[in-house]
Design a protein around this nucleic acid. Structure first.
Lengths: 107, 107
DNA sequence: TCTTTGTTTCGTAAATTTACGAAATGAATG
DNA sequence: CATTCATTTCGTAAATTTACGAAACAAAGA
């Protein structure tokens, strides 16, 4: 096996449970909820990171890290449009999250 | 004002945004999602902490801390029934969370 | 080519989270 | 009253998160 070891790892959580936890972690900070609210309410117009930074009590670099977190979770995507980056909701993953949380709370 | 100082604190996030973030933080760990899944699927029968600990790769004390987190967020409640504690979903807050997440994702 | 501009990455510090085992708790039982 | 039982709290260590300013980047304009 080319020097790789086979490790049997027991699975304790379902894929849905792990996906829920990851999405929830992305939503677990008010700055990130604010960002998602902002983007979801402004789907039609531009959503540059600079549009948000003036309304928030955090540094640009900190905002950038929060955007990175949301990108990592798949909830947003950035379309490069130099020197700006236009952020948008990632609709496919947003819908997936909607279904996941929907069926979690509604049973 | 009895020695207390008045501090004007600017508010950057709506109450809903802060409540969302708090609820999401409670959901941001797979153990806690597992617990909620377990309780929500077993509303009719007993839900002692011991019922879950054998299925999870964590110590009893760690499970207890996760239960405390969920209680703090209001998503569960514990009915003492010595020497057991029967945990249940807190239906009112569960429904509030359902509405919050529902209107967040569905707009 | 040197700035400017909007943004990200890096280095780092402080706070929070997660985890464990040991000790404590509180009610029932011998 | 000492023991048992399920559970929580405490003390603590390791990992992760959040934040900042400085530096780096990449494209456009002077």
């Amino acid at each position: 096996m080319n020097g790789m070891e086979v490790v049997k790892k027991e699975k304790y959580y379902t894929d849905n449970q792990e996906r829920m936890a990851k999405l929830a972690k992305a939503l677990s900070n008010p700055v990130r909820v604010y960002i998602l609210d902002f983007l979801a309410n402004n789907l039609d117009r531009c959503c540059y990171s600079g549009d948000m930074v003036d309304d928030l009590p955090i540094a640009r670099s900190t905002l950038s890290e929060h955007l990175k977190e949301l990108k990592k979770a798949g909830l947003i995507q950035g379309e490069i449009n130099p020197p700006y980056i236009k952020y948008c909701i990632n609709q496919a993953n947003w819908d997936e999250a909607k279904v996941l949380f929907g069926s979690f709370f509604n049973r």
